[in-house]
Amino acid sequence: MKIIQRPYLGELEMAVLEYLWANGTFDANGVHAALGRSRGISHNTIQSTLERLYKKKLLTRQKVSRAYVYQTSVSRDELMGRMITDVVHTLVDDDADSMLAAFIDIAARSDEAHLDRLEELISEYRSNRCHKSTS
């Protein structure tokens, strides 16, 4: 099963990305001041979150004096687009049945002729019903 190979993001990782998308470049101290203190998260946690995002190639970094300054390497729309594509590919996988209940099995296909026949059958029932209600 293909499943969200590309970036699996936790809540904090997404919050960091959202912050950087909205505010541009920041080092760990800046991100910690904006997100960490209000959430009661340590500087080290923010530092390792930034490191993980960098390893996932979602951030680029540059050393300025002694600290790294981070910047997003993908736009929000691009990342969302990638994730939606991955979810769609998961949906059409046969194995997805065990994870969800779809109105129609998304992995299945019906040929148009078969659907036409079924539609005719429904129309027949509908006209019969109208017939009965008028008579």
Binding site: D94, I104, A107, A108
Partner: peptide, 9 residues
């Protein structure tokens, strides 16, 4: 792996 059966339609 995919069935062409339209999900028991």
């Amino acid at each position: 792996i995919s069935a062409f059966n339209g999900s028991h339609i």
